[in-house]
């Protein structure tokens, strides 16, 4: 009798793994949660459903927390497999759905959660490497330089003796980002939102975040967005207001399609010349989140 096959709908024992709290150096150096603390202590494989990134702020600093999250980029790898397209702003793939602290059933935006598009199979003893660092947009400052950050993964522990799946889902996040003053109109780099893999990328959603050039201001930049695929097909045909695509309380635009290997998405950002903010574009990011199916060595066997 062979090993039982894994069904991701099975009841599996939940698990949350948290690494030591860490601070982010103000000089832009990397901080990396300890990878060994993110290994399944049950010494079996696991399915990871969520990445959680959060911080506790004191009351005064919490008021401008919005900015501090916008300053942080992440570079995530599972073993040798990249999950992000290099340094990627966390605001571009970890949406928060609660920008307001009033009448809330949540603890607001102190935590960003990346619900992976599909559960990610993590073999035993394969480490997750996550690096964070600050990348300050022009003119921005740090509100709480001593803030402690936490990184956790939430998933399900797989019993020992289960068959390794033939194919596994590997998430992917890639983003275009503007960190310094950019002249409008702005065109994103071809390599920014791309599928560099050999497998097709199942696109799940776009996530957008934009902030006023005046730090802390509640005025939203009247940025418009257009987007097209590298094969010429249109994704967003007309110049569409940024906040119509990505409302602050739900900054996600669902997608359901394939991005073929080596293809990319190009974004065109502009702003009405009548805007008082024209022509300066400060921190703006749009991320593409999806997953690819990768054949495991077991799956490759005849």
């Amino acid at each position: 009798m062979g090993q039982p096959r894994l069904d991701t709908n099975d009841f599996l024992s939940p698990i949350v793994l948290t690494a030591d709290s860490f601070t982010l150096p103000v000089d832009g150096a990397f901080a990396e949660p300890l990878s060994t603390q993110l290994l399944n202590p049950n010494r079996t494989a696991m399915l990871v459903d969520e990445f959680r990134f959060g911080t506790g702020f004191d009351v005064a600093a919490g008021a401008t927390l919005d900015n501090d999250f916008a300053q942080i980029v992440a570079d995530i790898k599972l073993g040798g497999a990249p999950l992000t397209n290099g340094e990627t702003p966390i605001r571009s793939f970890m949406p928060t759905y609660t920008q307001t602290t009033t009448v809330s059933f949540a603890v607001s935006d102190r935590q960003l959660t990346w619900h992976l598009p599909r559960p990610m199979y993590v073999p035993p003893n394969v480490q997750l490497h996550v690096k964070f660092r600050r990348k300050l947009p022009t003119g921005w400052s740090i509100n709480d330089a001593n803030a402690a950050y936490n990184f956790s993964i939430a998933g399900r522990s797989i019993p020992s003796g289960m068959q390794v799946p033939d194919k596994i889902y590997v998430p992917w996040a890639a983003a275009m980002a503007v960190f310094t003053d950019a002249s409008l109109p702005f065109t994103s780099n071809n390599a920014a939102v791309a599928n560099p893999h050999d497998e097709a990328l199942h696109m799940s959603y776009l996530c957008g975040y934009s902030y006023n050039s005046v730090q802390g201001s509640t005025i939203r930049m009247p940025v418009t967005v257009q987007a097209s695929f590298s094969n010429g097909k249109l994704l967003i045909r007309d110049p569409t207001p940024f906040y119509a695509l990505f409302p602050p309380d739900r900054p996600v635009m669902r997608l359901d399609g394939l991005l073929q290997p080596k293809q990319f998405v190009q974004f065109f950002l502009d702003m009405p010349t009548t805007s008082v903010l024209y022509p300066n574009l400060i921190f703006t990011t749009i991320g593409l989140v999806g997953y690819r199916q990768v054949q495991t060595p077991q799956g490759a066997q005849p």
């Binding site: 949350v16 959060g54 949540a106 959660t113 522990s157």
Partner: peptide, 26 residues
């Protein structure tokens, strides 16, 4: 005896990491 939540060094984890602060639930 199987671990459901393991913080650093298989010890405690801040509750905000366990019960997602956006939903107060897991």
């Amino acid at each position: 005896g199987y671990k459901i939540v393991a913080g650093p060094s298989n010890a405690y984890s801040p509750v905000g990491c366990v019960f997602d602060t956006e939903r107060c639930a897991w």
